[in-house]
């Protein structure tokens, strides 16, 4: 078939698909013109924004308000109207500690365990994530054979659902899993990866890095490719050693992308839940219990569920995320200003 015939078919198909849209547009045309005539551009803007604002209001703002309200109530009743107003008692309960350095002395020691685990996770996972993403991006930016294939390989895990990620790694890491089978075949003793506390925590960090590193590597790769090739050639003419090229040219020019990756990773690490929940269930014991899982279990899963306490914990976590998001916005705006110069 000729290219001309293909174009003709494509045009006809486009016309058929667009016909109902055109009809709809024609039907809405007179009332919209009236609205613009009598209401002006502000009313028109509000009209077009209304559907999104409605969805945002119903699914974000309203639950947020309800959550704040729940955090100021007590008891086990599910409906807000049946719950007793307790003011800031739930927050007080969360912060009620004999000694903040010893979480055993806290009334909600599980909350502080989750805070401690999440903080450790954030520090380890973010450093590892940024480091691995940077190395991956640097490698993928080289003139590799089958470069597109390798890029796809690193990005592929990002497309998997977190539950699938958790299940895959549970099959690999469990007592009779693939990894231990391999170790056994090589003559090593099997390791209880998901039963031993430190290994389980390391597995949580490693699996979450594996699942998301492709996305961050892609951001850094875009940054690396935006650095003009001539700068490296100028450095080559100047006799710059590879290490100095990295520290003095690549890293400073990649810094805007690195900062974005750092803050995005931070925000996502604080919210870690699904893949680790499927992988370890928070165990062994509470060694991989993170803040989101704590909130979920206190609010919905435990026998003595306490929606008020869970809401208070989620509001505190939300505040941390707001701070991190504002930090990210600040960085993005600063980069925009610099880019505009």
């Amino acid at each position: 078939m000729t290219a001309q015939a293909n174009t003709s078919i494509a045009r006809r198909a486009g016309a058929i698909i667009m016909a109902p849209v055109a009809l709809l547009a024609r039907a809405f045309d007179p009332p919209l013109r009236m609205l613009q005539k009598f209401g002006g551009t502000n009313v028109m803007a509000a009209f077009f924004l209304a559907p999104n604002m409605l969805i945002f209001g119903v699914f974000v703002l309203f639950p947020l308000a309800v959550n704040i309200a729940y955090s100021m109530t007590g008891g086990n009743a599910l409906f807000l109207t049946n719950r007793e107003f307790v003011g800031l008692d739930q927050y007080e309960r969360l912060f009620d500690c004999g000694n903040y350095l010893d979480r055993q002395t806290c009334r909600e020691d599980l909350f502080w365990t989750a805070v401690w685990n999440t903080s450790s996770f954030v520090v380890l996972q973010v450093s590892l994530m940024v480091g691995v993403a940077l190395v991956t991006a640097l490698v993928l930016n080289r003139d590799l054979k089958a470069r597109s294939f390798w890029r796809a390989v690193f990005f592929f895990p990002v497309l998997l659902s977190p539950v699938v990620v958790g299940l895959i790694w549970r099959w690999i890491l469990q007592r009779q899993g693939l990894l231990n089978f391999g170790l056994y075949e090589l003559g090593f003793e099997p390791v209880n990866w998901l039963v031993e506390r430190n290994w389980a925590f390391a597995a949580a960090v490693g699996v979450s890095v594996w699942a998301h590193v492709g996305f961050y590597a892609l951001i850094l790769l875009a940054g690396l490719q935006a650095i003009p090739k001539e700068l490296y050639e100028a450095a080559e003419m100047d006799g710059t050693k590879p290490g100095r090229v990295f520290w003095r040219i690549t890293l400073p020019l990649l810094m805007p992308n690195l900062l974005v990756v750092l803050v995005l990773t931070l925000i996502r690490a604080v919210q870690i839940f699904d893949e680790v929940y499927v992988l370890t269930g928070g165990g062994p014991g509470t060694s991989t219990l993170f803040l989101t899982q704590y909130i979920y279990e206190v609010g919905f899963a435990s026998h003595l569920r306490n929606p008020g306490l869970a809401s208070a914990a989620s509001i505190l976590m939300g505040l941390v995320l707001i701070v991190l998001t504002l930090f990210q916005l600040g960085i993005v705006r600063r980069n925009d200003r610099r880019g505009g110069k």
Binding site: E230, E233, A234, M237, G239, I249
Partner: peptide, 30 residues
Amino acid sequence: VAAADRGLAMVFQSYALYPHMSVRQNLAFG
């Protein structure tokens, strides 16, 4: 022989100045 060891200097079409360094640092880098 490597570019740096040929004793040549090149002026690029795009100038290839290091954007994050001052003019002084650009001149001093090599």
